[in-house]
């Protein structure tokens, strides 16, 4: 475990804490895309099928349980919590997430490291994670007043994979047992690039001390 990986995991964790904080304390999910949240739940469910069979470390297992539990409970909150669901911006969250799921699944069937049930699903989860933010970014562009918690949530979520890229570079040079992981790296780079535009406006609004607003 190097500092980049740890920092990546911590920003990922932070993003979820920020989102849960928003839902728990102000009982609101305004500006949050349910489509994206459902995609993340699917990402973690398909990626962490190994939770009961492969033990890497206590840290990994605990984190996997955390990501699985929180992603599913966030979807539950947005769909069923009688207060939270009222703030869900259904009319603007119209991206068809099925259009992302199907191509990712087909791609995982074609391009994978090993044609097994678990490996294909793992690969699918990487492809899907790379693009899962798209409905959220679309919703942000349609949202007039993006609140701080939502902006920070997306920022932490984007920073996480960017830090993982630094971790991969570090491991590539320092860990002789570390293999080439083309699928992971490519997906991670695509995932981070999707945030480029958002990062630009996020940092600009932060420096100018202005409210975050994405141009349409």
């Amino acid at each position: 475990m190097n500092i980049f990986r740890l920092a990546g995991d911590m920003t990922h964790l932070m993003s979820i804490v920020v989102l849960l904080l928003k839902m728990h304390t102000i009982k609101s999910c305004a500006g949050i895309s349910l489509k994206t949240q459902e995609l993340y739940a699917l990402v973690f469910i398909t990626r962490y099928l190994d939770i009961f069979t492969d033990f890497v470390s206590l840290y990994n297992t605990v984190m996997k349980i955390f990501f699985l539990g929180t992603s599913i409970s966030i979807v539950w909150y947005m769909r069923y919590h009688k207060v939270v669901k009222q703030s869900y911006d259904k009319d603007h969250d119209t991206f068809r997430h099925y259009f992302l799921i199907l191509p990712c699944f087909l791609l995982a069937l074609i391009i994978n490291d090993e044609f097994t049930f678990r490996e294909v699903l793992w690969t699918f989860s990487l492809y899907l994670e790379a693009v899962a933010i798209i409905p959220q970014l679309v919703l942000l562009q349609r949202t007039k007043n993006i609140d701080n918690l939502t902006g920070n949530y997306v920022f932490f979520l984007g920073a996480y994979r960017g830090l993982y890229i630094l971790n991969w570079i570090y491991r590539y040079f320092t860990d002789s047992h570390y293999r080439r992981k083309g699928i992971t790296w490519t997906s991670g780079i695509v995932q981070t690039l999707l945030y480029a535009d958002f990062f630009y406006y996020y940092i600009r609004s932060w420096r100018r001390n202005e409210r975050l607003n994405l141009p349409a």
Partner: peptide, 10 residues
């Protein structure tokens, strides 16, 4: 020999 794909990251 270890598996072709080991997933030790999250």
């Amino acid at each position: 020999e270890s598996k072709p794909t080991e997933h030790d990251e999250l």
